[in-house]
């Protein structure tokens, strides 16, 4: 499997930009196509067969590395959940753990438990979205609606606990978490 992957060559720009000849033609997939996720692929097709593809990933590159250079770790905690819509809490966790390790911060036991609970919930809702998107892609629209409906229960919990449905505003921050669980969260 790995050997096969190695054999596949990435197509150079010169091959694509030589222009369409004969039955071949060029087509843009994305960046506005709903299935392409802000990612553009320049395809060269022969009938329906893809001859070559060239990616242009620059439409969603926001330069977080550079933005984080100018900020403190606590500000970066808020920035770090903007990295990904679906797993924002997990990105929070990764950032917080990296800063903890660098600065030698000892995180309280309770905060560790809260972190894990939140990260797991985030992972579950991310998987539900995956299921929904796959259903949508295969034409099973009911599955899509159901998945997003179930995901909403978890998002409600996030809203109650962190204040944000999709972006938790740096809930998991260096040194622990921002707040404890509110009493209402238990009832939910």
């Amino acid at each position: 499997m790995i050997n096969k992957m190695k054999e596949r060559k990435v197509t150079g720009i010169s091959q694509i930009e030589s222009g369409p000849t004969g039955t071949e033609y060029e087509m843009f997939f994305g960046p506005a196509h709903p299935g392409s996720c802000n990612f553009s692929v320049k395809l060269k097709l022969d009938g329906e067969r893809i001859v070559s593809a060239r990616a242009d990933p620059g439409y969603l590159h926001r330069g977080f590395e550079k933005l984080m250079e100018y900020r403190t770790p606590m500000q970066n905690a808020v920035l770090s959940d903007r990295l990904c819509i679906l797993e924002s809490l997990n990105w929070n966790l990764v950032h917080a753990e990296a800063v903890d390790e660098l600065m030698g911060i000892d995180v309280p036991e309770r905060a560790k438990y809260i972190r894990i609970i939140m990260a797991e919930l985030s992972r579950i809702q991310s998987h539900i979205v995956w299921y929904g998107v796959v259903s949508k892609g295969t034409g099973f629209d009911t599955g899509f609606k159901m998945a997003f409906g179930y995901r909403d229960y978890i998002l409600d919990l996030f809203e109650l606990i962190t204040g944000g449905r999709v972006y938790p505003a740096g809930y998991i921050c260096p040194g622990g978490v921002r707040k404890k669980f509110p009493n209402k969260a238990k009832e939910k």
Binding site: G12, P57, G58
Partner: peptide
Amino acid sequence: NNDLSPLFLEDWDGPPPFRKDFNW
């Protein structure tokens, strides 16, 4: 490396943007 063409940036003629001394 035979292909070092621009990947993310478009029509960029400034200095490489992620250098620490580049003040955006």
